[in-house]
Write a protein that binds this DNA or RNA. Sequence first.
DNA 1: TTTTGGTACTTTGTGATACAAGGTATTATA
DNA 2: TATAATACCTTGTATCACAAAGTACCAAAA
Lengths: 110, 110
Amino acid sequence: MENTAENVRAQMRKGVLEYCILSILNKREAYASAIIEELKAANMIVVEGTLYPLLIRQKNQGLLSYRWEESTQGPPRKYYVISDKGREQLAQMDEAWKELVETISTLKEK
Amino acid sequence: MENTAENVRAQMRKGVLEYCILSILNKREAYASAIIEELKAANMIVVEGTLYPLLIRQKNQGLLSYRWEESTQGPPRKYYVISDKGREQLAQMDEAWKELVETISTLKEK
DNA sequence: TTTTGGTACTTTGTGATACAAGGTATTATA
DNA sequence: TATAATACCTTGTATCACAAAGTACCAAAA
């Protein structure tokens, strides 16, 4: 098992992705490719094969809904929208994230 | 699939565990039960079935070594010690953690 | 001296999930 | 009517955290 700097980042972000998606959709609705672009801009690379099943899982959990919209530049886009339940979940995740940051900080103390 | 607050925390910390272990062992050598105690004190619950294989993986990667030590209170303990390679890895992880915190922060900006 | 309880290390099976790779479908343009 | 670009989806694989059960050592009580 290799352990390059890239692998370290990949490892570390596991489980945080779901949080990122909800955070993005809490700002504005978006379709998958746009979400990937925003993640890339924030320095977190995600591939389609990861994102699509994740969006479907969150939709099935009632955290998101979606609607189709025509595009002038290709096939129709599936715009995802965060739901009330999704916002509740996001609030929990905000809390969990704060705690995780605190936990790491505590562990670093000598 | 349930999604309690506890599950959220569990999900989120995936991949961060390895970082936590190296951070603890960078302060002082320790055996598994003591590591679990320190994690619990920092609000991160981990069970034996998770920790032992993880320590073995890190040892096999050359990040840790160990030595046996007698105990007055039961069977001998396996004390793990971080290696030079482990410290290098930890430095990379410190960087990756900083970036991840930054990434989340960026995604939260409207 | 046998049993009991506590401590510590280990293994097996399961479910979740990120990714690589490949596939389908729509639209515009050459 | 190809071709390229865009967009969505699926399958197979590897990894990993966890639950649960097992093994081994030691000391103190019965």
